[in-house]
């Protein structure tokens, strides 16, 4: 009787349900929530850049070179008289424009390679894994520097080189999961059911082998943002006056000694914040996707 007296719970609208889920996730993993919030903030900046930035990022004005932050130019102006705030905002567009394609290129190369080597084993596995060891042992920044310097400092070249350097990371985690799934019972059950190898690989193994790679994407995106900024800083990546953070820091570095700190510090802070956000998201994702890690933190 007392049950009947209770009001029937109304089915929540999908927005309310989604909000409930989000709240649940952020309670379980505040790291993930903060990381996601930071990235969402930068994504909004990137998408809305043309609307919200006060000026064009490349509008130089010789009349206001190297002016300190003020009400007119919140982040000050740089050596060309360009508005630093507008350039920092547009820089987020470049950060995403590099990080996302790098991760995609890395996944497109790394995941199939990991799947194939993990499944076949034997000499292809040996060769590919030793090759990827060699790539990993070599400092990636030096390799990237050399290749970009040789191929030319275009956005496309930077993306391709970083993506290629990133692929072994995904290949490795996918391979490890394929190795442990390969002799598992449900794969044997799939063989017993008469599945062709292709279907076993793509329908049965692959969807169960992407956990590690998924958790890696955010961390590797942070790496891509960092390395591409480093390349630009060293002068072989994206060239000024393109509003890329690394290139901006490079320009601003010259003025640090003479006291015009704002040219380098603001893009530097943006870079640090985005890399931090991506790393936090990656950590949170790893916790969420790996049941063993989750159990350990509970």
């Amino acid at each position: 009787m007392s049950d009947a007296a209770l009001p029937a719970p109304a089915t929540p609208a999908w927005t309310a349900r989604a909000a409930g889920r989000l709240a649940g996730i952020s309670r379980r993993s505040p790291t993930l929530a903060i990381g996601a919030a930071i990235i969402l903030g930068f994504a909004l900046l990137a998408v809305l850049a043309p609307l919200i930035s006060p000026e064009s990022p490349v509008a130089s004005n010789p009349a206001r070179v190297l002016q300190a932050p003020s009400a007119a130019n919140w982040f000050g102006t740089d050596g060309n008289g360009m508005d630093v705030l507008s350039r920092v905002i547009h820089g987020s567009l470049y950060a995403f424009g590099i990080a996302i394609p790098v991760v995609i290129v890395g996944l497109l190369i790394g995941v199939p390679v990991g799947l194939w080597t993990g499944w076949t084993g034997g000499w292809p596995d040996e060769i590919v894994m030793r090759g990827s060891d060699a790539l990993r042992v070599f400092p990636s920044i030096i390799l990237a520097l050399a290749v970009v310097a040789a191929a030319g400092p275009s956005l496309l070249n930077v993306v391709l080189v970083l993506g290629l350097l990133d692929a072994p990371v995904y290949a490795r985690v996918v391979r490890a999961e394929v190795l442990s799934l390969r002799n598992g019972t449900f794969v044997e059950a799939a063989v017993a059911a008469g599945n062709p190898t292709r279907r076993i690989l793509f329908r049965h193994i692959l969807p169960n082998a992407l956990r590690g790679a998924t958790a890696q994407t955010a961390v590797r995106a942070a790496w891509a943002v960092r390395i591409s900024a480093t390349l630009a800083f060293l002068g072989v990546g994206i060239q000024p006056p393109t509003p890329e953070w690394g290139a901006m820091i490079r320009q601003g570095a010259e003025y640090m000694v003479t006291g015009e700190w704002w040219v380098a510090v603001f893009p530097g802070c943006a870079l640090i914040l985005l890399v931090l956000g991506l790393n936090m998201l990656g950590d949170g994702l790893a916790d969420l996707l790996d049941p063993r890690r989750k159990a350990a933190t509970r």
């Binding site: 598992g184 019972t185 449900f186 044997e188 059950a189 799939a190 063989v191 017993a192 059911a193 008469g194 062709p196 329908r203 049965h204 969807p207 169960n208």
Partner: peptide, 25 residues
């Protein structure tokens, strides 16, 4: 194995641990 596959319609297996034998996805 490739020629075994059509035969598998006629021979099937039930495993000991159903949790391990089903693709979780």
């Amino acid at each position: 194995e490739a020629r075994c596959r059509p035969l598998r319609a006629n021979m099937q297996m039930v495993f000991q641990d159903p949790w391990a034998a089903l693709n979780p996805r």
